[in-house]
Design a protein around this nucleic acid. Structure first.
Lengths: 234, 234
DNA sequence: ATCAAACTAGACTGTCCAGTACCGTACTTG
DNA sequence: CAAGTACGGTACTGGACAGTCTAGTTTGAT
């Protein structure tokens, strides 16, 4: 944005705008991106009804007409923002997720898993997204369904599959993987998420607190579902 | 709730409108109540911005002027609704809450406690209230703070105090009552609450499901914090 | 019966906002 | 370089809504 806006003499050597059509990333696509970025910020700040399209146009440095050219309506733009953020966050959690090897310390693996999930989800933008979607459940039930599916449900399915495997290997005492996954998930996520939900982004715990919280949750989980975790006197 | 309204057979001569000025429950108070009831329904349905004052006036069978006479503004009316619902629900949970006696089965007591909490909180109106407040966190942070304080925080304080006492009596292996209370609370509440939060009132579990859910949560809690719950081999 | 306070109905003001229309300009592509 | 398309700026339409105002009516106490 801060690059040379004054073109200069005649034909700039085009260091950033590829003339060939192979790239496909022309002016139009750039404007579209700008609108998406601005809309995201504005919607997350003001909610659906609390946001007006002029503000989005102004913040993205684009005319209102262009906004409506790319996204037909306020509603469509809103849906686009929410779904893209939702799936994006879900992918961040699940991409390149290592599986526990035979020799790994299971407790350590679960702590890492929990901590990773906590740090990804407890982000100001994701908390705002969650508040936004929850507040609009009656107006946009589909979006809430998508968030649930791409968030908790997806995470718990992955965990249930993992726990089932570990139970088969005799490393966990789990007979109902879904229930165990739910217990693990909420032992770890519930407290900080609900806290941040109501008390605002300022209530998001620090990394150290999240570490400790993950440890506590895993300890309780393994006390109930672990194989060799008889409460040993320290 | 459905018990005798504490009235008793003393001297209830008046049917509804006491003529004496001592009561103060005249026409004005009736109108005020009507406005509150209507506002509650309309706000819970449409959210803060999605609600207009004409609708409230129409539903309560009262002129708009009267609405503004009793509550100075839309914002004041909204705050009134939310705070009264919040404290009311908190009282419902904690009023007449029995304590576990010496001989009681602790697991049974905790199951009952959990089930009670679940049934009170998982009510369509309370879920709608929660969504409403969460959606308005940025506009009304105080209301969210009040909901957190009168809801989860209050419940967890009560539980922490109980656990501390039970630990002192040697009936629980708890060294950090706050953490234990958090674990208990969210093992029980998190799954159904978050589910209903995103999937709508139709996702509120049945009473049987809540019973089972409470059992599962208590089992895990006692595996971690119980005294005599060594995992017996089946 | 009388009077004052509270209520009703509805018109009204000022403001905000989604979405459109118009026209001149900048960019892209052949 | 030419032509077509996308964009900027801005004014405009149509409708919604918080809050006020006015004039007439009901209610409840004296």
């Amino acid at each position: 944005m801060t690059t040379s806006t004054t073109g200069g003499p005649t034909t700039v050597a085009d260091t950033q705008n590829p003339p060939g059509g192979t790239d496909g990333r022309g002016r139009s696509a750039r404007k579209r991106r700008a609108v998406l970025d601005a809309a995201r910020e504005v919607f997350l700040r003001g909610g659906y009804l609390g946001t007006n399209m002029d503000e989005i146009a102004a913040l993205s440095g684009v005319s209102k007409q262009t906004v409506y050219k790319h996204f037909g309506s306020k509603e469509a733009l809103f849906v686009e923002i929410v779904t893209s953020m939702t799936t994006g966050a879900g992918d961040t959690v699940h991409d390149r997720l290592p599986e526990p090897a035979e020799g790994d310390d299971l407790a350590e693996y679960l702590r890492e898993y929990a901590y990773r999930q906590l740090t990804v989800v407890l982000t100001p933008d994701l908390m705002r997204l969650r508040r936004l979607v929850i507040g609009e459940v009656s107006r946009f039930p589909e979006l809430a369904r998508v968030l649930h599916e791409g968030g908790p449900a997806r995470a718990m399915r992955a965990m249930a599959a993992l726990f089932e495997r570990l139970a088969g290997e005799g490393r966990l005492a789990v007979d109902d993987p879904e229930t165990a996954a739910s217990h693990f998930n909420w032992l770890v996520m519930a407290e900080p998420v609900n806290r941040a939900m109501l008390l605002g982004d300022g209530a998001i715990p620090s990394q150290e607190e999240l570490r400790r919280h993950a440890e506590d949750g895993v300890r309780v989980f393994l006390a109930a579902y672990g194989r060799d975790t008889g409460r040993s006197p320290e």
